[in-house]
Design a protein around this nucleic acid. Structure first.
Lengths: 196, 196
DNA sequence: ACTCGTTAGCTAAACCTGATAGCTTTTAGC
DNA sequence: GCTAAAAGCTATCAGGTTTAGCTAACGAGT
């Protein structure tokens, strides 16, 4: 029995691909082992267990998503950048729903955790988007969370087939981008932020 | 051995409560059986299996959430209604994180599925909110999806501990409400919706 | 009150998945 | 070539879900 030449990274990559094929909940150590050509217990020579596999897939996915977002917004600004980031994010989630699902509910162990690093990197493109709008510096974190919430929410709802109304989903998404653009443009108007 | 007087509804309710106590992933048929005072296989006399239990909990939760939202927005309009709906939704998710987690990733089997019914009922309060803004009728479905995406996204991310920035989360939420309010208020301004 | 069919409970057991232990073989470095 | 580390294997255990089949409780009708 020759060796398969595995390591944590190749196993995580295979796991991510397999999850996208058969669904996140259907991803088992047994199926993953079969996919990479070894018996189940052999996986544990490289990865501590299912939780660790999950984390590795999440880190891989977040890095991948950050790259995609960065490339999409490269050289764009303002509304163009917003549109590009929004579409790139949604396309990514719809193309890799299970991979994305693996990133939900994961908490980084610390600031040096690859997951935390990738998450921060993924925020970069959104920060760049915000620079095209006139947001007060102390409001940037709030605006970032708003952007994440909006697009994460839409993408996950669509991926979960959660939109039941007859209206066209792509149209709704373009409407959403407009909606966000308007909200951001009026963010710096005096008096519009004195809530409570 | 006297009968326990169980049925699908009481089991689902017990499952929802137990999930909130010990966490959604810790909810097993064995623990649920212990909670309601029977042996594990007895549960299958009332509920087809874990998937069905999950759906029942989801339906229960969505109905409950719809009621809460309805009550919260009762007698309010415009920005007041928006604020009330947003806070009620987030409070609900934070109070019952596991119950809410059971609703994520569930796809209704059809328009008559109790889950689909409850989802539509949950849209009611948001439709009422939109009536307080000057939205063109053909844009209502888009605006509804936007509201769902925003608040579902924020609640999901917060429940998953997804916000890592040092900024205060409650402040971010109030900022988000302002943000949505501004986006909705400017929705009917001519020329602001000619995207692309 | 008695009978009888239905059904909710039980035990036993099959099956699947995650994980560990311990042995064997490959492989890299000397 | 030898040797130690690492990667594969089989065997096995510990849960967890689910089904099969039995028994006792319950409600309806007489």
């Amino acid at each position: 029995m020759p060796r398969a030449g595995l390591n944590a990274a190749t196993i995580a990559a295979a796991g991510a691909a397999l999850a996208d094929e058969i669904g996140f909940t259907e991803l088992t150590m047994g199926r993953l082992a079969e996919r990479v050509g070894v018996r189940t217990p052999s996986l544990y020579k490289h990865i501590a267990g299912q939780a660790e596999l999950n984390r590795q897939i999440a880190a891989l996915t977040l890095t991948e998503a950050a790259d995609t977002l960065g490339t999409a917004t490269q050289g764009r600004a303002g509304r163009d950048a917003l549109t590009a980031a929004a579409r790139a994010m949604r396309d990514f989630v719809l193309a890799h729903p299970s991979r994305y699902a693996a990133t939900i509910g994961i908490t980084p162990t610390g600031p040096d955790d690859p997951i935390a690093v990738a998450e921060r990197r993924g925020l970069g493109p959104f920060e760049a988007v915000l620079r095209g709008y006139d947001i007060a510096p102390q409001e940037i974190p709030h605006a970032l969370r708003a952007l994440r919430s909006v697009f994460h929410g839409f993408a996950t709802l669509q991926a979960a087939n959660g939109f039941q109304l007859p209206a066209d989903i792509d149209e709704s998404f373009e409407w959403l981008i407009d909606f966000v653009d308007r909200g951001l443009r009026s963010a710096s108007i005096p008096g519009s932020t004195d809530h409570r």
